[in-house]
Design a binder for these strands. Structure first.
Lengths: 104, 104
DNA sequence: ATAATAGGCAACCAAATGGTTGCATGTCAA
DNA sequence: TTGACATGCAACCATTTGGTTGCCTATTAT
């Protein structure tokens, strides 16, 4: 889980996920296309995404095809965000009360 | 949004949020209690959480009270995770098809 | 008044991060 | 078979990160 959060912390990696979300099954060079980064930089990002199980790859000859795996993202929503979802309304009303009170 | 993701990337910071989720409105020293970190380290983490708007603070005399703000977390769920939610089923069936085919 | 308490600030440090360049390897096409 | 293409590996570099220690300031309690 920690690896997923860390993987999602970087904007370049999130944008790579966005790219795969738009078009799944791209090759490495396809993913590099138009990016202000060297291929090797992208390779490193992909490796981190693979470690976090956010991207799965298949070799096809000399090409490496990249597939998005949105399951860990879904799990973050399920296991972690949901927990703070309930807290939201509580926190908001608490904040309201706090801001309206004078005794501070 | 980037700041929120970055703030959530660190396990210590997530655990601080967990602590505030369990008990809102704690002072700095309360938050430090039982942690294998100096107060100053916690201060830095809190600052990052404040920058990301995940924690709001109120001064009360010499104490600084910390309140969880779960709204940015909720927004991540709404704006970002939701996007990959739909992709989940697609990706899973695609993966299944992929794994079942022989021609690779 | 003064000591204890709660927190802030700044300098410093090691390790992790995000990126680069250079070269090696494997696969496809002419 | 040989050149071009897709990717892999490793060394290196600057910056960021997560943490420390030492000291300063403000507030509270005795």
């Amino acid at each position: 889980m920690d690896e997923v959060f860390k993987a999602l912390a970087d904007a370049s990696r999130r944008s790579l996920l966005d790219r795969l979300h738009a078009k799944n099954g791209q090759t490495l060079n396809e993913l590099c296309d138009g990016l202000a980064m060297t291929r090797q930089a992208v390779t490193k990002h992909i490796a981190i995404l693979e470690d976090a199980n956010l991207v799965t790859t298949f070799r096809h000859g000399r090409e490496k095809l990249h597939y998005l795996n949105p399951v860990p993202i879904h799990q973050i929503g399920e296991r972690w965000i949901k927990k703070f979802e309930r807290a939201k309304l509580v926190a908001l009303s608490e904040l309201k009360r706090r801001l309206e009170s004078d005794d501070e």
